[in-house]
């Protein structure tokens, strides 16, 4: 299917039209995200914004931010103690992440600036454990044969 551009995923220059404090905060956040992108490119260091720590953002600021960042190509779902939804925004390297608990209540909502969200990468310890477990499986399978 052809990719349909909507207002939300065209990278446009935002001009503030409202006096709402939520929108002002959302604008500040966009500038902050912009600075995080620069840091990511210059140093490889990721950046995370915790939207729950910003109650003053309000519903209007939240909607504004979400709409302006839009949706990109990648979406992922993590199933661990309740699910997590990860969505790339229309801006490559900017990810919108929502963690839920088992009752589908939102635990936290983040914007992460990274090449790949930290939580999508398999943690090193878990990889070491699977190396051991897989070799056990191979051992069992060899004995059975």
């Amino acid at each position: 299917m052809a990719h349909v551009n909507t207002f939300a995923n065209i990278p446009i220059n935002v001009v503030i039209t409202s006096q709402s404090s939520g929108l002002t905060i959302a604008m500040t956040l966009l500038h902050e995200i912009q600075a995080m992108l620069k840091t990511l490119l210059d140093t490889g260091q990721n950046g995370i914004l915790d939207l729950r720590a910003l109650p003053a953002l309000g519903e209007d600021g939240y909607q504004f931010l979400k709409e302006k960042l839009g949706q990109g190509e990648v979406s992922a779902r993590i199933q661990s103690f309740g699910h997590s939804e990860i969505q790339e925004t229309a801006y490559s390297g900017i990810w919108w992440i929502v963690h839920y608990n088992q009752d589908d209540g939102i635990l936290t909502e983040l914007v992460e600036v990274n090449f790949l969200p930290e939580l999508l990468k398999s943690p090193k310890d878990d990889v070491m454990f699977s190396q051991i477990n897989l070799s056990k499986l191979l051992h069992e399978l060899t004995i059975k044969k």
Partner: peptide, 28 residues
């Protein structure tokens, strides 16, 4: 690991609490 809780789950739990504990999430 012994209780079957993956690193990812624990990280998710801590991230969920970070705003409440006023720990910057990037430090988590």
């Amino acid at each position: 690991a012994n209780s079957g809780v993956s690193r990812r789950s624990f990280m998710k739990y801590c991230m969920g609490l970070s705003a409440m504990m006023a720990i910057p999430i990037s430090l988590m």
